[in-house]
Design a binder for these strands. Structure first.
Length: 391
RNA sequence: GCUGAGGUGGCGGAGUGGACAAUCGUAGCAGACUGUAAAUCUGCCGGCCGAAAGGCCUACCCAGGUUCGAAUCCUGGCCUCAGCACCA
């Protein structure tokens, strides 16, 4: 499979207007304007977000003119695509600060020496009301209101603000202003991205394209999101990251190899065959975990994170993974319960008692049923994955 | 602006004067089984005290009030939605 074909298929859910025309454009060899817009309200990137970043990077690598667009102005309105409610309005300082943390993470995937960063306030702020109204001529309110989520909100009797209708208009103007050839984004952005095509067509008589990437499912198979607590974050510690990958349901292995790593298409093919031939999925999942940790934290840390995992969860040797806690003088008289609460490992006394009843707490590998004192050298396990060692 | 409906735990959604710390579902936590899988089963799921029985505190949008007693009734606010009206 050649580079262009991979670009057009890997992780791609949909291409608008169609794949063949876009292929022809890419083969043409012209340097194209390509961008991916992000919402600066989010400061943490998970490996699902990274799918689009990878795609952007792939284009940058081929030498196209690639822009990473910060939707600082659009953030004032709040995207409605993933709805639930309108979003909070951010100050420009917050947005800039958010972006710095974002960039720090994104650079694990994006090469910022090849990717231009712009903010859409640069042009959106300057539009006059008259200009805005003229832009709105190109769009139909019916299209907006017939969007599934909007329709649902209306049906459910939820509030839909009139300002929300301007969101796609703004995004369309971004596309027009930058004279975009290809816009990248998640499938949830398809509607908004269409607006760019409309303006490019109407105002510049130019055909532009949309590549909508698919979603990476969370560790439990639902959409990856902070609220579900099923996300693997770019900044997760290596050990944590390895463990999270291992807790994936087996059905997701191929999806993760394809969307969350740079594993070549050829290798992926081999892995698929191994899986099909009945090889233990756990083995492949370990390879996946090493791969992901290796790509995001460096090869050097991939091996140790695997060892950590195997020690603790396969061999059940908690010593090696326990967080070491040195007791302060004033903590030495605390009972176990008091200590765990003060360390925030247990949220409340009541919860501690419940854990005791549920046999969830043990010291040096034996379950305890009552609060007690701890001593130096004790290894304490709380629930499935919290362990500490008193030193 | 008018009329009507409504605001309950992370979410969905019961309850409409006492038996309500609030049915149920979902998410979460713990245990069993495992590959820290998944699926399944069991238990828990506001806080504090207590070994327990139990007690106390805080909570059903906000502020007051009625009552022995309020998530439930009354008054006033705030917010959401729907229909209608208005639109030089």
């Amino acid at each position: 499979m050649d580079a262009i074909e991979e670009l057009l298929t890997r992780g791609v859910e949909n291409i608008i207007p169609n794949k063949e025309k876009l292929r022809a454009l890419l083969i043409g060899g012209r340097k194209l304007n390509i961008y991916l817009g992000i919402d600066p309200t989010a400061t943490n990137i998970h490996i699902g977000h990274a799918v689009a970043l990878r795609k952007l990077q792939a284009f940058a690598k081929l030498g196209h003119n690639v822009t990473f667009l910060i939707g600082d102005f659009t953030a004032l309105i709040g995207d409605t695509s993933d709805k639930e409610s309108e979003r909070p309005i951010l100050t420009s300082e917050q947005i800039e600060k958010n972006f710095q943390t974002y960039k720090e993470q994104a650079q694990k995937i994006l090469d910022f020496s090849k990717v231009k960063v712009r903010h859409n306030s640069e042009w959106l702020k300057k539009l006059t009301f008259e200009e805005i109204i003229k832009l709105t001529y190109h769009f139909s309110a019916g299209d907006f209101y017939s969007r599934e989520l909007i329709k649902k909100r209306l049906n459910d009797g939820l509030h839909v603000g009139l300002h929300e209708i301007l969101y796609p208009v703004m995004q369309g103007y971004d596309s027009y202003f930058m004279d975009t050839d290809i816009q990248l984004g998640g499938t949830d952005q398809t509607f908004n991205m269409q607006a760019g095509r409309v303006l490019q067509k109407d105002l510049r008589d130019k055909e532009s394209f949309i590549i909508a990437n698919g979603f990476l499912e969370g560790t439990d198979g639902r959409k990856m999101s902070k609220t579900w607590n099923n996300a693997i974050w770019i900044n997760d510690e290596p050990n944590e990251m390895f463990g999270k990958v291992m807790s994936l349901r087996d059905e997701l292995i191929m999806q993760y190899f394809t969307l969350a790593t740079n594993t070549s298409i050829g290798e992926i093919q081999t892995i698929r065959q191994r899986l099909a031939s009945g090889e233990n999925p756990m083995v492949l999942k370990k390879e996946l975990a090493r791969r992901i940790v290796g790509e995001l934290h460096g090869e050097r840390l991939a091996e140790p994170s695997q060892e950590y995992f195997e020690n603790i969860f396969t061999k059940r040797d908690y010593k090696s993974g326990a967080m070491e806690i040195t007791l302060n003088p004033n903590e030495q008289s605390l009972t176990l319960g008091q200590l765990l609460i003060s360390l925030s490992l247990v949220p409340s006394r009541s919860e501690f008692k419940r854990l005791l009843e549920q046999k969830a707490i043990n010291i040096n590998n034996s379950v305890i049923s009552q609060d007690c004192n701890v001593k130096i050298g004790d290894i304490i396990k709380v629930g499935k994955r919290k362990f500490i060692k008193i030193v």
